[in-house]
Design a protein around this nucleic acid. Structure first.
Length: 493
RNA sequence: GAGCCGUUAGCUCAAUCGGUAGAGCAACUGACUCUUAAUCAGUAGGUUGCAGGUUCGAUUCCUGCACGGCUCACCA
């Protein structure tokens, strides 16, 4: 603690004075009967005359956000989890001794308040305090009330201050919680079982991203934090769990940006005897129900752009989308070198595996993706960039896969699962040879997964949805850090 | 990892051309029994992110570092 700080010293002196007077500055015997919201809900529409007949007393507790005090009376604004309410202290009502205590409380302290409800001259619903207790003496001054807390570093590092000072922040996280709850309900109602699979993977798989490495002492074993749950969820499908979903953290040791946090939350779900087309239909249904429930309609505004979720959403083939951009010679689809030329013209670096499909995917990312503002399913990606997807029956060069784009970002990725173990092994091997130079990618053949596949996986479709990015859309948040309580930051000095 | 921008009182922000670092809120003292950015009078609060350099003199100019933001790259 910065013991030199005068403000903290003052408060410590107050705390010591309370102790000397025999008052506990941190008691825990106060019983709460109501929240601020309970009172607003019950009495918010009643006039002062009507309130006069309410003789009941209410006990609420919360943190003081503002004090407006006079000689022998005073108002405080108290905040609890559900909101804020004003309380009125009068010397004549609470008594001389209690009023002296009231005079010493600070912004930031917690109070337990008991009293009647009334409406002030200016019309504000207010608790007329009859008895109260200091519940917590706060030792540090809160951010200023009018401008609030805007310093982003403080907001992220000390999220509690952000939550206290900026009511909007609580709403964002409330929306996040509601969205996740709705996803659970959606899948549970459809007979999906929620499961948990390992975070610690001996071989990282299910996505091509750099993993975090860790180590288990007793087993003397290197482990990786999972980059995706996919391969373990499929093992469960092989075990006969036909409908499963998991909502949990994934970890990728990549750069940090407004759309990337090293740990993020992903929903993955799998349904046997379904196809990628069923997944698209389900995604539409899931997202529309959430938007309707949370926004109250099918249109929302993100970053000033209106996004319309009215189904059916646009669907376009991956290759078609490249041609429709009007930026490319159609031959890029047939001729790998033409595709590479097009990429060079755009100034793209092609250091990764430069398979034809990879190059086309890079062109797509550069040219098509940013323009996909309205919800759009892009289907039939090149097989070369989709190592876990089932090939299309008519054209083995592409897979039965889609990605959902909204506001120029990838939100979901789903496909009919590849369940041919021989083909899967070949795809893995191809992937390994393509990326062999990139040693730190730690790609290894997951023999255990391949063995499981050899026992037979029912035809299945699966999908992954980035929850954080979806919540960004629902809450009009420009940065992923606005929807994660504690985004990763460098250590403070 | 690269580029650009930022860092001044607890919070939000000023500070002319390089010339003694200010305000509002918060805090402290006093007045005030319906305020709500309460009001009024007064007081205190600073190693200007850190370390160097230039200069008679640096918040200001230069270099390095730290942390943050945005953009790019890697990825989802």
């Amino acid at each position: 603690m910065d013991e030199g700080s005068e403000l903290i010293q003052q408060r410590i002196r107050k705390l010591e004075k309370l102790r000397r007077e025999g008052r506990d500055p941190f008691p825990n015997n106060f019983k709460v009967t109501h929240t601020s919201k309970d009172l607003h809900d019950a009495f918010g529409s009643m006039s002062e005359e009507e309130l006069r007949s309410v003789q009941e007393t209410f006990s609420i507790a919360g943190r003081i956000l503002a004090i407006r005090s006079f000689g022998k009376a005073g108002f405080v604004q108290v905040q609890d989890q559900k909101g804020r309410i004003q309380a009125y202290f009068q010397k004549d009502v609470v008594g001389e001794q209690s009023f002296q205590l009231f005079k010493t409380v600070d912004i930031g302290d917690f109070l337990g308040l008991e009293g009647r409800i009334f409406r002030t001259k200016t019309g504000e619903l207010t608790l007329q305090v009859q008895n109260f207790q200091l519940l917590v003496k706060s030792l540090r001054p809160l951010p200023e009330k009018w401008h609030g807390l805007t310093d982003v570093e403080t907001r992220y590092r000390h999220r509690y201050l952000d939550l206290i000072a900026n009511p909007r922040v609580k709403e964002v996280f409330l929306t996040r919680v509601r969205a996740i709850q709705m996803i659970r309900d959606f899948f549970t109602r459809r007979g999906f079982m929620e499961v948990e699979t390992p975070m610690l993977h001996p071989i990282p798989g299910g996505a091509t991203a750099r993993p975090f490495k860790t180590y288990h002492n007793a087993l003397d074993m290197e482990l990786y934090l999972r980059v995706a749950p996919e391969l373990f969820l499929k093992r469960l499908v092989i075990g006969g769990l036909e409908r499963i979903f998991e909502i949990n953290r994934c970890f990728r040791n990549e750069g940090i940006s407004t759309q990337h946090n090293p740990e993020f939350t992903m929903l993955e779900f799998y349904q046997s005897y379904a196809t990628y087309e069923d997944m698209m239909a389900m995604t539409e249904e899931l997202f529309c129900s959430m938007v309707k429930e949370i926004i109250g309609g099918l249109r929302l505004t993100y970053g000033g752009k209106e996004i319309d979720f009215t189904p059916p959403w646009r669907r376009i083939g991956f290759r078609e989308s490249l041609l429709q951009s009007g930026r490319f010679d159609p031959d890029i689809l047939r001729d790998r070198s033409k595709a590479i030329d097009a990429a060079r013209e755009l100034g793209l670096e092609l250091k990764r595996g430069t398979s034809h499909g990879r190059v086309l995917a890079d062109l797509f990312k550069e040219v098509v993706e940013p323009g996909l503002i309205q919800p759009t399913f892009v289907t039939h990606y090149p097989t070369e960039v989709s190592p876990l997807s089932r090939q299309n029956g008519d054209d083995p060069e592409v897979v039965d896969r889609f990605e959902l784009f909204i506001a120029g970002r990838e939100i979901a990725n789903g496909f009919s699962e590849l369940n041919d173990p021989i083909e899967q092994r070949e795809r893995f091997l191809k992937q390994l040879s393509e990326r062999g130079e990139e040693a730190d990618l730690v790609l290894r053949l997951d023999e255990d997964f391949l063995r499981a596949l050899e026992f037979g996986m029912p035809p299945t479709a699966g999908e992954g949805i980035g929850i954080d990015r979806w919540v960004m859309l629902l809450t009009d948040s420009p940065s992923i850090r606005d929807v994660i309580f504690f985004p990763l930051l460098r250590m403070e000095k």
